[in-house]
Structure formats: C-alpha cells, structure tokens
C-alpha cells in the first residue's frame, strides 16, 4: 500500500478537506489503485529529459504598464456569502 488512512487524512488536511470516517477506506483504496497504476511511469528512463509544464513556446507575455478600470467594489462583493462594512466577513481568525 502506497498510502494509509493516516496519509490520506494528512493530504486532506493540506487540501482543506475533511473526509468522513465512513468514506476513508474507500478513498484510501481508490488512491492506492491510482498510485499503483502510476508505477508504470517508472519503466521509462527520463534522465535528462526536459519537463513540459506547458506546450507553448511563449513566456512572459507583457502589456503596457497603464492603469485600466478593474472590478468595482460593489461588483466584487456581489457573490460574497457575507458582507460587513463593505468587506468580506469571515468567522474569527485569531483568538
């Protein structure tokens, strides 16, 4: 087994997700199934092969440094779950 339930819980925490205990076995099993399948990549010798994060031969696309009108305050708050004094309201962050 590549990952245990404990590992899955750790990854869930990094992902800001909580997996219900009842789902844990299924998740762990599916995770391992995929990671085991990934072993076939080890058959390939990739020493010295450049990685391809992107396929385009372009980088650093720049525009003129001029101010343009952005999203208005009102629009930015339109889909907010909770608004207070013109800002996004969230539960307490620090005790």
């Amino acid at each position: 087994m590549k990952v245990t339930a404990k590992d899955v819980r750790h990854i869930a925490n990094l992902s800001r997700l909580s997996i219900a205990d009842s789902e844990m076995d299924k998740f762990t099993e599916q995770f391992n199934q995929i990671l085991n399948y990934a072993d076939i990549l080890q058959e390939l010798d990739t020493k010295g092969i450049e990685p391809s994060p992107y396929v385009l031969p372009i980088s650093n696309v720049l525009r003129e440094d001029v101010a343009v009108v952005g999203v208005s305050h009102e629009e930015a708050l339109k889909n907010a779950p909770e608004v207070h004094n013109g800002g996004f309201k969230v539960p307490r962050v620090i005790e």
Partner: peptide, 27 residues
C-alpha cells in the same frame, strides 16, 4: 473559525470526484 469555515465549505461544497482529484493533486 475561518480555517474551519474553509475546510467545511469545501468538504460540503465539492463532490467526491472533485475531492479525490484535489487530494491526488495535492499529494
């Protein structure tokens, strides 16, 4: 708390396939 709000919102808001892929990607 804010961190708990984010974790619970994501856990309740995303379905199983999306959660599976986010976790695989994080891993």
């Amino acid at each position: 708390s804010a961190p708990e709000m984010t974790t619970l919102s994501r856990s309740e808001g995303f379905g199983p396939e999306v959660q599976r892929r986010i976790m695989l990607g994080t891993y």
